[in-house]
């Protein structure tokens, strides 16, 4: 029983290293082509295409991918803690920016929801 857990942990580690490799490969491609997009997105597309064409079997990444996605929020904390460097967010201008983000969010929800609902109704007819 205990042995099985060790094997699983090892599997997760190896698969995360593989995902890390894809993200590094993505960074490399992005910097070679001089593109202003995140390398990890290129890594994501590579992995999706790899899975879709069966070049990368799902079993090769599923444990590691499943695990890293569960703990993903942890990796955001170093960035969000950086907010202590920006106390001006609590100024009138900061509040205005926050309101802008909120209004934009609601507009996005309304447009996306209406457009796809319209589509759905059309398909029913």
């Amino acid at each position: 029983m205990k042995k099985k857990i060790y094997i699983k942990i090892l599997l997760i580690l190896v698969q995360i290293i593989f995902l890390y490799g894809l993200s590094i490969l993505g960074n490399l491609i992005v910097s070679l082509l001089n593109l202003p997009i995140p390398g990890s997105i290129v890594g994501l597309l590579l992995l999706f295409m790899g899975l879709h064409t069966n070049i990368i079997p799902v079993t090769f990444i599923q444990e590691g991918a499943g695990f890293i996605l569960v703990v993903l929020p942890l990796f955001l904390i170093p960035s969000t803690v950086g907010v202590i460097e920006y106390p001006e967010l609590l100024s009138i201008r900061g509040v205005m920016l926050i309101l802008m983000v909120m209004v934009s969010t609601f507009l996005t929800m309304i447009i996306v929801g209406r457009v796809s609902t319209f589509r759905e109704k059309k398909e029913e007819v």
Binding site: L19, S40, I61, I68
Partner: peptide
């Protein structure tokens, strides 16, 4: 670890 986590989004 954000990099590999973004790559992992391909799985779902």
């Amino acid at each position: 670890l954000l990099g590999p986590a973004v790559v992992a989004l391909a799985y779902p």
